[in-house]
């Protein structure tokens, strides 16, 4: 079981809701993944438009926890206002805080991130900060009031998988008791299994499932890989060695020559 702020979930997969071929395929993927947390956004509604309402209904019917995000925000004031508007709509203190600092890599602006995290935490929000694998930034986010961290492992939507495994390991070692969720950059179930084997608590992904040929099937594949990686971490994986080590004991072998 995984506790994030005051809520406990059994699935260690958090799923984004964007870029699916259809709302029905999104719903199928959510169900088949077994996820209990989905991320959603807020966008301008056109006059007389009912698009937001239809999506809201769909999400409510899935019966999962909603993690609203501040995707696309570039300033503290924009992110804080978006968070407040999300709280009004979704009636949750949870917020995935995303403050973009670089257009090409969508790298978080960690300076503004810490500032916004402090303002929101002081205002009663439970902040899920989308951050880098920088340890000092992680520490500052915790000081600002965050109770968990969500480092990227590669740029958003890149599907490259973990680009800096040693940094992810350092982060796990530095914050042993803080829930760590890899957010962004996962492309395949093997990537998700890899970070779970490092001891990460959960994985948040979107495009890797939404962009698959069969999103529901891929959602299930991710769920299984995440469970496998988590079990492997608990089991204590063997470290790689430079030399061969025979699996079968040599002592007692018959001598025929």
């Amino acid at each position: 079981m995984l506790t994030l702020y005051d809520r406990t979930v059994s699935s260690r997969l958090l799923l984004g809701t964007a870029r699916y071929p259809s709302p029905a395929k999104l719903a199928d993927a959510v169900r088949r993944s077994g996820t209990e947390i989905v991320t959603v956004s807020l966008r301008r509604e056109t006059a007389g438009g009912k698009a937001g309402g239809a999506f809201f209904e769909l999400i409510r019917d899935l019966g999962v926890h909603v993690l609203p995000n501040t995707a696309g925000c570039h300033s503290v004031s924009e992110a804080v206002l978006t968070a407040k508007m999300a709280r009004e709509v979704f009636r949750t203190n949870w917020i995935k805080l995303e403050l973009i600092g670089h257009h090409d890599t969508l790298q978080p602006d960690v300076f503004q991130l810490v500032e916004a995290a402090k303002i929101l935490s002081d205002d009663g929000f439970e902040v899920f900060p989308y951050t880098t694998d920088d340890l000092v930034v992680g520490e500052r986010l915790l000081q600002a009031g965050c109770k968990l961290l969500m480092p990227w492992c590669a740029p958003i939507g890149s599907a490259m998988g973990p680009q800096n495994v040693s940094a992810l390991k350092s982060m796990r070692a530095e914050f042993p008791d803080i829930p760590l969720i890899v957010d962004a950059g996962i492309g395949r179930p093997s990537h998700a299994a890899q970070v779970m084997e490092l001891g990460y608590d959960a994985v948040l992904l979107n495009t890797a499932v939404a962009g698959a040929g069969n999103p529901a099937l891929m959602a299930e594949a991710f769920a299984k890989a995440i469970d496998a990686g988590h079990l492997a971490y608990q089991a204590g994986p063997l470290e790689p060695r430079d030399m061969a080590v025979p699996s079968t004991p040599v002592i007692g072998k018959g001598v025929f020559a």
């Binding site: 966008r43 698009a51 937001g52």
Partner: peptide
Amino acid sequence: VEILAPMQGG
């Protein structure tokens, strides 16, 4: 005036 509604997001 800004009027926002829930939308798909990751």
